[in-house]
Design a protein around this nucleic acid. Sequence first.
DNA 1: AGGCAGGCTTTTA
DNA 2: TAAAAGCCTGCC
Length: 276
Amino acid sequence: MIVSLPEEISLLKIVESGQCFRWKRTGENSFKVPFHDRMVRMNQSGPDMLEMNCTEDEYLSIWKNYLDLDMDYGKMNSRIHKRKDPFLWNAMKAQNGVRILRQDTWEMLITSIITQNRNIPAIQKSVELMCGKAGTKCTDPEGEEFYAFPSPEQIHNMTDDCLGGCKLGYRMKYIRDVTEAVFSGKLSMSDLQALSDEECCKKLVALNGVGEKVAACVMLFGLHRLNAFPMDVWMKRILENEYPDGYPFKSYSPYNGVFQQYMFAYYRELAQKGQR
DNA sequence: AGGCAGGCTTTTA
DNA sequence: TAAAAGCCTGCC
């Protein structure tokens, strides 16, 4: 079906902003996008136009929400003032079309643990290995097979050899511990939703292998808490170099996480071009 | 108590 | 060889 979007988005900028690690690029503006036991092909035929190989019902019940199309990003962006905060303004203009996907909480928890101290290609490799070794085999509308992200039970059932084959390094124990906490019922992803940001963060940080940064990623990308602000090496550089007098978190609440994503992607792009 | 150095698996550039 | 969307432990 063809979807006419309420405002401009950019599939390319979304995937390059480093929030999802399983999309596969199939063309200049085309991607295979897995979510739970589904995989859809998205082709961006215009700034506010998407083609997807799914029914309208599936679009309305799954993908519309996944792409966060009910949120008004234009309204959020209007909080940014060109004169008061030119760096964020430029980041927002350059990254217009980035959205915070509503991804699966469990998948984001494990994936975010994997991200620590690694670069993006290495992250993708480990995640894909875990899916292939333990995830449920599914079939997309074109008849192509793919693997869903493994459930807590499926990871629990992986042998040490099997999990060790996912190139997780020292993070393997973290993933074992977190999986055990969820498998045993000590921690439930759905219970996290009811907590305040502060309580939610506290609960996540209590897990072995989860610090402030990983917790913020889970909250932003896995629980759609738009004020969560993952402070990684890049954001530290940005705040240090661009905001020597401090960053105005208060004036951007409750959208700090969205703007963080603009700055993160923008700065990495600048670094790639050698401009930072 | 709170802050900091050192170590950690493996891949990537 | 250093750095990579960090965290844990031990030490002070």
